[in-house]
Simulated scan of single mutants.
Amino acid sequence: MIGGAQFYRRHARTWQEGALTLVIIAIAVIAAFPLAWMVLSSLKTPQESMQVPPVWWPGSPNLDAYSQVADVVGLGRSFLNSFFIALVTTTAIVITSLMAGYAFAKYRFKGRDWLFAALIGTMFLPPIVTLIPLYRITGYLGLNASLFGVVVPNLANAFGIFLMRQYIKGVPDDLIDAARVDGASELTILFKIVAPTVLPAIAALTLFAFVYHWNSYLWPLTVLQGNTDQYPIVISLSRLLSYNRGAMNTGLVMAGATLAVLPPVVLFVFLQRFFVDSIVATGVKG
C-alpha cells in the first residue's frame, strides 16, 4: 500500500508539472502571437495582406514596407528624438533614484518617514492629473516645443526611488561604515559599493524607465505643440493611421510598428538576466 501511495503521488506530481508546463506554453503563445503577426505582416506583399482567409506566412518575404515607412515618417530623425528622450530620462531616473533611495534607506533625519510617505502618495496620482501643472511649469521655464520640455519633468521618479530604497535597505550597514572608516566619500560608497550590490534592481528600473518613456505619447504630444521635427517615433507613426484604411497598406503600418518596438525588445534581451535576478531576489526577501 505504501509503494502504491508513493507511485500515485509521484505520477500525480508529474501530471501537475506537465499541465502547468502546457498552461505556461499556451500563455506564452497567446502573448507572443500579436508580435509575431505584426512582424510577418510587415513582410507580406499587398496582395497577401488582402487575401481571405488570411495568409499566415508570407510566400515571398520582402522589406519593401520598411523602406516606404522610412520615407513617410522621417524615420532617422524620429528615432534620434526617441533615443534622446528615453536615454536622458532613463539615465537621470536611475541616478536620482539611486541617490534618493540611498538617503531614505541609510540616513536618519527628521521627517524622513513622512517625506517618504508623501513621495509614495504621488505614485497613486493618474498622469493626466499632473499634465496641466507640468505643462504650465515647462511654459514658465521656456521649454515648450522642445525635447528638453519632454525630458525635464521626468528626471526623477517616485517608483524608482521606492524600488532603490527597498533594495538598498538590504545592504549591510557594517559594509558602509567600514567604507566610511577607510575615508570613502558618500558618493564613492554609493556608486562603488552600494550600486554594484543592487545591480539587478538598477537593471529592472532601467528597463521599466526606458520602455515607458520610449512609448510615451501624450506628454510629448502636449509639450512639442506640433513641432514635427522634434516628434519621437511613437508620435511620428501616427501619420501611418491614414494608411491603415485599406488592406493594401497593412504591411506599411506593421513595418512601422515593428521598428518602434525593436529598441525595447533589444534592451530586454540584454537585461533579462538581471531582470529575472531582481524578481527572484524580491521573492526571497518577501
Results as ranks from 00 to 15, higher is better:
Leu134Ile: 00
Pro126Ala: 13
Ile30Phe: 15
Leu80Ser: 07
Gly170Phe: 13
Ser97Ala: 13
Gly139Asn: 11
Asp71Arg: 12
Asn157Ser: 15
Arg165Cys: 09
Thr130Glu: 06
Asn144Lys: 11
Thr96Gly: 07
Arg112Pro: 07
Thr90Leu: 08
Ser67Tyr: 06
Val69Trp: 09
Pro127Gln: 12
Val171Trp: 06
Gly111Cys: 09
Ser41Glu: 05
Pro58Lys: 02
Asn81Gly: 13
Met38Ala: 09
Leu80Ala: 09
Gln166Ser: 05
Gln68Met: 09
Lys106Leu: 13
Thr89Ile: 14
Leu35His: 10
Tyr107Asp: 08
Ile132Cys: 02
Gly142Lys: 10
Val94Ile: 15
Gly101Ile: 13
Leu115Asp: 01
Gly170Met: 14
Gly142Leu: 11
Thr90Met: 11
Phe124Thr: 14
Ala100Asp: 01
Ala145Asn: 12
Ala117Trp: 13
Ala70His: 01
Trp57Arg: 03
Pro58Asn: 04
Leu80Thr: 01
Thr96Glu: 07
Phe116Glu: 06
Gln51Asn: 06
Ala70Pro: 07
Leu75Met: 07
Ile30Thr: 08
Thr122Ile: 08
Gln51Asp: 07
Gly149Lys: 03
Thr122Arg: 11
Ala32Ile: 10
Val39Cys: 01
Pro54Trp: 09
Leu75Gly: 08
Ala28Arg: 09
Ala65Leu: 00
Thr138Val: 15
Ser146Val: 11
Pro126Lys: 10
Arg136Pro: 00
Leu115Thr: 04
Ala65Lys: 03
Leu63Lys: 02
Thr130Pro: 06
Met50Leu: 14
Gly76Tyr: 07
Phe124Tyr: 14
Ser146Ile: 11
Val29Leu: 15
Ile27Ser: 10
Ile168Asn: 07
Ile93His: 02
Tyr66Phe: 11
Pro34Ile: 06
Leu163Ser: 03
Ser146Lys: 00
Ser42Gly: 05
Arg112Glu: 05
Ala145Ile: 11
Phe109Asp: 00
Lys110Val: 10
Pro46Ile: 12
Asp71Phe: 11
Arg77Ile: 09
Ser82Gly: 12
Arg136Cys: 01
Leu35Ser: 06
Tyr135Asp: 06
Gln51Arg: 10
Gly111Lys: 05
Arg165Ile: 01
Leu43Cys: 07
Gln47Met: 10
Ser82Lys: 04
Thr122Ala: 13
Phe116Cys: 03
Ser146Tyr: 13
Pro133Gly: 05
Ile95His: 09
Leu63Cys: 02
Gln166Pro: 03
Ile128Ala: 14
Arg165Lys: 14
Ser146Gly: 05
Met50Ser: 15
Glu48Thr: 03
Ile161Phe: 12
Ser82Gln: 08
